[in-house]
Simulated assay, not measured.
Amino acid sequence: MTSSRVRKEVDEALYAFVDRQRPVLLAITEDLSPMLGALDALLSGGKRLRPAFCYWGWRAAGGADGPEILAAAASLELLQASALIHDDVMDGSDTRRGLPSVHRRFEAMHRTEGWPGGAEAFGTGAAILLGDLVLSWCGEMFDTSGLSQDVLAAGRPIYDVMRSEVMCGQYLDMLEQARGTGNVESALRVVKYKSAKYTIERPLHLGAAMAGASQTDLDALSAYGLPLGAAFQLRDDVLGVFGDPAETGKPAGDDLREGKRTVLIALAHQHGSEAQREILNRRLGDPELDLEGVEELRAILTETGALEGCESLIEDFASQAYKALGEAPITDEARAALTDLTVAATARRV
């Protein structure tokens, strides 16, 4: 099973599930068609990392290939869609994956139709409801994947805690932005719960647990998944500031406008001068930040060594992941596939 085939079959399972839901919604009213259109647009992009890690967690523990595990794994993409929709509302993001974010899409629809009332409030409300709908669908897709009830029951506690952890991680992220006094330790705590566990460790655990993995096996996967998840998020943080919009799907410096208190920002605060910290505090989170302001903040992140320090952390976390993967008691096929995923998650450059 190649990575491209995993993605292809995950996509097929995902789109088939949404297509089964389509007539259910449209039987209520055709007015729900824009909800489906917004979801279709969002699901057309994405790296499908969480389903891939779930699938290879299953194979790592000796689970057999089959459409049922791919359908169960694909349900994680609906959980991700829900998280992204809500995340964009909270951050006030205009774009996602190179397209208008869901709340902006509905806001534009309101304005185009010339309806009375506030377009922004309508967009926000519609996005929250779509995110909630998709969150409910992820559990339904998991439960109807075709795996036996015993297998599903083995994974359900992990699925449940995964959903709790990502919501808590999102709150911690908001808390750091609100406080505005984050340090490296607190920023790494957000990384752990908002991304590392949710993106890699828990999907691996989910697949492996359903295949009958022992706690020792799960611990070995944690030793690989947590540092890799941290490296993945730190790479995303770097790209959120220095990345090419054509690659990231977001405007240049969007994370700076949103005021994200990332490890990158925490390192700059830690090593910057009083004058540099003053500029960071004043300009970070300014929704009107222009390209000149973005370049000023980028310069500070470079001059303080924050960018270099973040790259060093990425290398350290990736090294830990590679070492743990080499020692993990998993199948050779899974080890090779997870090695490829490690490269994909950490090797992206600005």
Results as ranks from 00 to 15, higher is better:
residue 1 M to P: 05
residue 10 V to M: 07
residue 13 A to G: 13
residue 16 A to G: 07
residue 17 F to I: 07
residue 18 V to E: 08
residue 25 L to M: 14
residue 37 G to N: 11
residue 40 D to S: 05
residue 42 L to V: 01
residue 51 P to Y: 08
residue 56 W to T: 04
residue 57 G to V: 05
residue 60 A to T: 07
residue 65 D to S: 13
residue 67 P to W: 06
residue 67 P to L: 03
residue 68 E to Y: 03
residue 70 L to T: 12
residue 70 L to Q: 12
residue 74 A to L: 03
residue 76 L to R: 06
residue 77 E to V: 04
residue 77 E to P: 12
residue 80 Q to V: 01
residue 81 A to Q: 07
residue 86 H to G: 03
residue 86 H to Y: 06
residue 97 R to E: 09
residue 105 R to N: 00
residue 108 A to D: 12
residue 110 H to T: 05
residue 110 H to N: 02
residue 111 R to C: 04
residue 113 E to H: 13
residue 113 E to V: 03
residue 115 W to E: 01
residue 115 W to V: 00
residue 117 G to A: 11
residue 118 G to L: 06
residue 120 E to Y: 02
residue 124 T to L: 09
residue 125 G to W: 05
residue 125 G to R: 05
residue 126 A to V: 02
residue 132 D to F: 01
residue 134 V to N: 05
residue 137 W to I: 07
residue 138 C to G: 00
residue 144 T to S: 15
residue 158 I to C: 02
residue 161 V to E: 14
residue 163 R to I: 11
residue 164 S to L: 15
residue 167 M to I: 15
residue 169 G to Y: 03
residue 172 L to W: 06
residue 175 L to K: 14
residue 176 E to L: 15
residue 180 G to W: 04
residue 183 N to L: 02
residue 187 A to M: 02
residue 188 L to N: 11
residue 189 R to D: 15
residue 199 T to N: 11
residue 207 G to R: 06
residue 210 M to E: 09
residue 211 A to P: 07
residue 212 G to F: 09
residue 214 S to H: 07
residue 215 Q to T: 10
residue 218 L to F: 05
residue 218 L to P: 10
residue 219 D to F: 00
residue 220 A to H: 14
residue 226 L to Q: 12
residue 226 L to W: 00
residue 229 G to D: 02
residue 229 G to W: 06
residue 233 Q to K: 06
residue 233 Q to I: 13
residue 240 G to H: 11
residue 247 E to S: 12
residue 249 G to C: 09
residue 254 D to M: 04
residue 255 D to V: 04
residue 257 R to A: 07
residue 262 T to L: 05
residue 262 T to P: 10
residue 264 L to Y: 02
residue 265 I to S: 09
residue 266 A to C: 07
residue 272 G to P: 11
residue 277 R to L: 03
residue 277 R to K: 13
residue 278 E to D: 15
residue 287 P to F: 08
residue 289 L to C: 04
residue 295 E to C: 01
residue 302 T to M: 03
residue 304 T to A: 07
residue 306 A to F: 01
residue 308 E to C: 01
residue 319 S to G: 15
residue 324 A to W: 03
residue 324 A to Q: 09
residue 325 L to E: 10
residue 337 A to E: 04
residue 340 D to R: 13
residue 342 T to K: 00
residue 343 V to R: 14
